[in-house]
Design a protein around this nucleic acid. Sequence first.
DNA 1: ACAAAAGTGTTGGAGATACACCCATGA
DNA 2: TCATGGGTGTATCTCCAACACTTTTGT
Lengths: 244, 244
Amino acid sequence: MNTSTTASLNSNKRSMTFDVSVDNVVFGFDGDDLRILLIRQGLPGQDMGQERFHMAVPGDLVLPEEGLDEAASRILSNLTSIKGIFLKQFYTFGAPDRVFHEKDKEWLTKMRRYPDRRVVSVGYYSLVALADYRPKPNSFASQVEWCLLSNIPTLAFDHNAIIDAGLEQLREDVANRNIIFELLPEKFTLGQLQRLHEIILGKTLDKRNFRKNVKRMADVVALDEKQAGVLHKPAQLYTYRRQD
Amino acid sequence: MNTSTTASLNSNKRSMTFDVSVDNVVFGFDGDDLRILLIRQGLPGQDMGQERFHMAVPGDLVLPEEGLDEAASRILSNLTSIKGIFLKQFYTFGAPDRVFHEKDKEWLTKMRRYPDRRVVSVGYYSLVALADYRPKPNSFASQVEWCLLSNIPTLAFDHNAIIDAGLEQLREDVANRNIIFELLPEKFTLGQLQRLHEIILGKTLDKRNFRKNVKRMADVVALDEKQAGVLHKPAQLYTYRRQD
DNA sequence: ACAAAAGTGTTGGAGATACACCCATGA
DNA sequence: TCATGGGTGTATCTCCAACACTTTTGT
């Protein structure tokens, strides 16, 4: 092969291999607060002397025959044991040193076959209505927890930045598409819908104007059913039905 | 290592390596039409008998020490020899078979060191004002051409899908951010601005309403200069100055 | 004079904003 | 009866859509 004619943009001069992973920012709404699914893993081979944990957003290496969306939903269903959840790719994180900070070294060494390999991670976010599906912590030696969005601790790798980027994308998507209903149970009140908007957008909204807007969305239909067992005037229940 | 306690989401059962590449959808506006930068490479080792070409969006494997944004701007500056161009990551393409179609086999075999490796590609789009910078076809044995958006041929791999996705993202970003000015020369007319909007959004706009909207954007300022040498009433020139 | 794009206002309707009080329930 | 969120209407203003003719230049 004559390199002087075949030299190209697709240079092979230096070659390397990457690992590709998917990290999933899972948002859940419990009726009052927005939460994020985190996994805590004890570092193996320690005698509980000082507890050391690895806290992270759920993620995994992509398998050889697996597409990216597929990997994201596998990761999610391993944790929550439910399927059919809203999932969206939002950004890919590829800084050369993103997994090579001192704090992450121990975990990488113990858990990864090639701890020195550069890892490019494709970020997804997911929306889960906590009221419908109480997800079971299904997984192995790790615990899952729904952490308040306002209370996220320092996480492994660049996962705090991944969450920030996911939240920013969520804000945009809520403004432009009807995805917010993915976070609500099948039956919800207008109060919940408004609170959720306020949390995501980070500002308060006028109740009467908000309800006026909702009333002119054809997709939000009133059920003839009301809240029960609540310590105030029970609210009308609504549901979301995508028009055809 | 005790696998029963360390088994985790980050399974190492099957392991593989990926190549990671960046593909760049470069939009250029020439004053009349929206175009996309394509590269055409003759397949090496052929005797011009039947001409066979590889046509693709500019792209390359990411280098070992290089970030993704960095790779995208390297690819772009190799082709256009200008810097400081607007660049944005929009989606990552990772279908397991995305480079393994029959039509692409020859190119992969001849140009890539590991033609069997799965390739995950991070899509970027870029915006170039063709009137300011006439980019020189700078590159090796390949030719660059600015192809009309309405005339894109069948390209290598999944590059047609990448262009579609890039265009969709561009549409959204034009609606939500002030990026459209990246496609215009420093001095432009309101007619050009409107035409560009119409092309990108795929619909015609009312001239008077359009101009009303522009006039209330503080960032678009009238120069005291007019078009010259044009076969009709010369237009007022404007420029875009980001407010502080 | 003609061709070709530039430039310019008004009106009616829809959506946004601002604002305060009564209601139904469980404890 | 009290605490708690549920539920409701009006006035103003801004933004959007629809619509047609005159102006300036080069040939």
